[in-house]
Computed example of a mutant assay.
Amino acid sequence: MLEIFGIDEESEKVYARLLALGSAPIEKVAEEADASPEVVEGRIATLQSAGLCVRDVTGWWQVVPLPEALRALRAKRTAELDALVASADATQTRLLAMSDVGSGNLRALVGGEALRTALRDFAHNARFEICGFDKPPYEITRPPTKEWLEEHSPEYQALLRGVGIRSVYHPGFDRNRLTEMSTFHDAGERARTGDVPMKLMIADASVALTQAPASYAPDQERRAILVQHPIMVEALQSLFEAIWHRSLPIDTTSGGLSSDPRRDLLISLLMGGATDVAIANQLGVTERSVRRWIANLMEDLDVQTRLQLGAALARSEALRNDSTSLAGLDAD
């Protein structure tokens, strides 16, 4: 019965005696088991090491119920397996990095420093456009400023020197990310939000960089792959375009209504006819939050009903489009 714990037959008999006694000193267990105290002490030590018996407050021995002992054993084995999987995973990625797959068409990057260097070179070498997916978790948690981005962000530096950037952000941005998105938008980034499958960057439709999903988890080694194989880059670019076209624009200049991309997304979803449930799912918030935001928006626009809200938003969008058209005529 106790083979799964690695317990021999004689020690199992001691477990059964101790179970019947409830709690007892070694001498009493030895008497019941018809064995010497020294022999019983050794078998109790075996049971104790397997988590099957413990001392009570009086110093006597008592058994650990089998279901409880099995749960403890399962937790221990699971922890051991998790440690083995993590070790094997790290070994595999290091072997991959050493192999430099595909004669340069695929290059594995292992470790935070290797990834940061690759990102810096990636953005620095971009000439025309960078396309990307972004999703939590985010490595940088500091409040972003324009000055910090100008000095430390390779993507922002590329944007400032005239490289176009199109990004699709997965819903669930925190306040710092919203601030950073607004700063990028002010510098010319075109941004949308939608369900994205991974972190991805593509430069000039010729090279791509994507992180391994497992490395998103806390305390995991950062891993990524640099892709230069033309067929694979073409496939990733097609994936980006498909998700870009079905994602919703984030516009921080829509008639001066909002400087918060999350609120602009709310407006886009409302104008697209999305329900409160759909909006909540898209933004990663509760329906109650959505209703509160809509109420605040109605108050800002001085309307009383959802119908009036829709008309006000449509009118604001039309005015914005007219202003854009007139600006284009003036430029001519």
Rank of each mutant, 00 (worst) to 15 (best):
I4W: 01
E10I: 05
K13T: 03
A16I: 06
R17G: 02
R17Y: 04
S23A: 11
I26R: 09
I26Q: 07
A30D: 06
A33K: 02
E38R: 14
V39R: 09
Q48W: 04
G51M: 05
G59E: 12
W61N: 09
W61P: 01
L73Y: 04
A83L: 03
D89G: 08
T91M: 11
V101S: 07
T117S: 14
A118G: 14
N125G: 04
R127A: 07
K135W: 02
K135A: 07
T141H: 14
E147G: 01
E155M: 14
Q157H: 07
A158S: 13
Y169H: 08
P171K: 02
R175H: 14
R177I: 14
L178P: 00
T179A: 11
T183A: 10
R190Q: 12
A208M: 05
Q211H: 04
S215P: 00
Y216F: 10
A217Q: 11
P218N: 09
R222I: 02
H229L: 08
M232E: 15
V233Y: 01
V233T: 06
L239Y: 02
L239E: 13
W244V: 03
W244G: 01
P249C: 09
S259R: 12
D260G: 04
L269D: 07
N281G: 11
Q282V: 06
S289L: 11
W293E: 15
L297R: 06
R306E: 15
A311M: 13
A312Y: 03
L313K: 05
R315P: 00
L319W: 07
T324W: 10
T324G: 08
S325E: 15
G328Q: 15
